[in-house]
Design a binder for these strands. Structure first.
Lengths: 207, 207
DNA sequence: ACCTGAACACCGTTCAAGT
DNA sequence: ACCTGAACACCGTTCAAGT
């Protein structure tokens, strides 16, 4: 007989509850958004009591922090492409596309990574490091473009400028502040705004 | 005798509850952050019942929407400076400083304006318009810099690129993704990242 | 017209208790 | 060691009722 009830004992003391909670949270994240993602809903999805999570995470913030850290690691991995021997501008374009695509594919995760939900007080070391790793990839790309040292102050500045630009653009689009032009590809959109920059910083044509 | 109790009847039927709620919300916003700002706390601060707000706003989202709209109007006003007859780059620098200063002075308001808390479904027309107004100021500034038409496609692209950059930079700083270098002025910081851009887009020095 | 109080369905989090 | 259930202090929101 033994009906498989909802509160199945299959998930009692399984031993790997933490990763299960994380993947459940990740699944719910894109539907609920980072603000409305609730610990209770995550627990219920796994089939576990509402308080079980507290034996694996200090609180909701910490679970979210692990989720964000995973996001930064994925972003870093996506950016860790082979050195294509293309022109500097092509490399910049390519990195922008990867970054922009990541944000567009997982907007809620991206919002979590860069948003208000992360309690900045007790930051997970894991998260701080994953974030630094992602920024490191940006520096590596920029250094390659310029044929310069990855850790020089100039490269850092250039990478921060690039990061600001692409993060701002992705942010404006996924928060629907700017409408993403319907019927346009990511490629065309990135190219268009990259052109916009050239207009903003005229390559010393007159004067 | 007539003690002035907390639930004072002074605030019963005053007639201007809506603006009072708005200013109370604005006051609480920077302490609580956009995510944790609660309608109940706002009502309590005004000295009114928890449900009174529903006679003036459809729900929490709408109140937040009005707050954000006010923020965009303030930002637009700050940007609406007289045309200083300076070099294009000086004008860009000046606009960036104003924008960056706004975000740094009211980080929670800025996060609300560009964040997840705004239910994008039923957007207030007021908010959409105030936002467009702010972007209009950016376009005006960029058009002035380039000596071009404010509504041309090129100016729009350049303005969007500029907006992406400064929004990204402000966003990274106020969300504490990038540490704002301690002991540095906004001026120095903006100049430094603006230089970073020059490095990213080399002014055609070598072929 | 404008506001209140009780009520409902949610939250995060704690704590004693169970296995 | 790992999980549960009851409980607490919060939420947003509704609705009938008061002025």
């Amino acid at each position: 007989m033994r009906k498989a009830t909802r509160r199945s004992r299959d998930t009692y003391h399984v031993g790997n509850l933490a990763p299960q909670l994380l993947t459940a949270a990740r699944e719910l994240l894109e539907d609920a958004g980072p603000t409305r993602l609730s610990l209770r809903a995550v627990s219920e999805r796994v089939g576990v009591s509402a308080t079980a999570a507290y034996h694996h995470f200090a609180n909701r913030s910490e679970l979210l922090g692990h989720l964000a850290a995973k996001g930064f690691r994925e972003l870093a991995a996506a950016l860790r492409q082979p050195h294509t021997e293309a022109s500097p501008l092509q490399q910049l374009r390519s990195a922008c596309l990867i970054y922009f695509g990541f944000a567009r594919k997982s907007p809620a995760l991206y919002q979590l990574m860069f948003g208000t939900e992360l309690s900045h007080e007790d930051m997970l070391p894991e998260l701080t490091q994953a974030r630094a790793e992602a920024f490191g990839e940006l520096r590596r790309i920029v250094a390659g473009m310029r044929g310069a040292d990855r850790d020089s102050a100039e490269t850092r500045r250039a990478a921060l400028a690039g990061w600001s630009y692409i993060h701002g653009l992705a942010s404006l689009v996924i928060h629907e502040v700017m409408e993403f032009p319907p019927g346009t590809s990511d490629e065309r959109f990135i190219d268009s705004t990259l052109q916009g920059f050239a207009l903003l910083f005229p390559p010393s044509e007159d004067s």
